[in-house]
Simulated scan of single mutants.
Amino acid sequence: MANTASKTRPKFLHLTEIRLPLPGIVSILHRVSGAGLFLCLPLLLWLFAASLGSPESFESFSAVVGHPLAKIFLLGLMWAYLHHFCAGIRFLLLDMHKGLELATARKSSVAVLAVSLTLTVILGVKLW
């Protein structure tokens, strides 16, 4: 008879206690921002068409975009685009085997977050 007590059982992972490194957080945010941009694409296309269609459709565009909640939502989409763009450049460089060392990967992930947030603040203040 086999000894079942000596078998190692899988551990229960507490997902709230797992500390992900910063490059992992940037990677997850890259995926989330890409999914968010994809899911909001019909709305963005409608807003773009409304802004270019006619003077009446531009008025409806202005009414939608002028609401403070819409501005906050569009600011979030702007961050998603800028983060996805900056992280995409980082991942392209990683695919070319540049910046694979641990210290460089951490610095580039900090740079992605800093650049995307800074550009979001600058463009958000300019467009608000």
Rank of each mutant, 00 (worst) to 15 (best):
F48Q: 07
H30T: 14
L69E: 03
C40L: 15
S62M: 09
F61S: 11
A50M: 12
L100F: 01
G66W: 11
V110C: 08
L44T: 06
L102R: 10
L92V: 13
G76R: 01
L44N: 11
H30E: 10
G99W: 04
A35V: 13
A63M: 14
I28N: 02
H67T: 12
F91T: 09
G34L: 00
G34P: 02
H84D: 14
T16I: 03
F91L: 13
R19N: 15
R90F: 01
E59V: 15
K107H: 10
T16A: 15
H67P: 00
W79L: 15
L102G: 01
A50C: 13
L77H: 05
W79K: 02
L37W: 12
L45A: 10
A50Y: 07
A35M: 14
K107F: 06
L94Y: 04
V26T: 05
G24T: 13
R90C: 05
L77F: 01
K98Q: 08
E59G: 09
W79T: 04
G24W: 09
L47W: 11
I18W: 06
V64Y: 11
L44G: 09
E17K: 11
H83Y: 15
G99K: 07
P68D: 14
I89R: 02
G34R: 01
R19Q: 13
F61R: 09
S57F: 08
P68W: 15
L20G: 05
G36F: 07
I25D: 06
F61P: 04
L94F: 11
W79I: 03
K107M: 03
G24L: 15
L74H: 08
E56W: 08
K98R: 13
W79D: 05
A49V: 13
L113Y: 10
G53R: 06
I72M: 15
L92I: 13
G66S: 13
P23T: 10
S54F: 04
L20I: 12
A35F: 12
P42L: 10
S60T: 14
L43K: 01
A35N: 03
P23W: 05
F48T: 14
W79S: 13
S108A: 07
I25T: 06
H97Q: 14
R106C: 11
I25S: 00
E101A: 12
A111I: 04
L29Q: 06
R106N: 07
G76P: 12
L44Y: 09
L113N: 03
L45W: 02
A103I: 02
F85R: 00
G53S: 10
V32N: 02
L102A: 10
V112I: 11
L43P: 01
D95H: 07
L93Q: 04
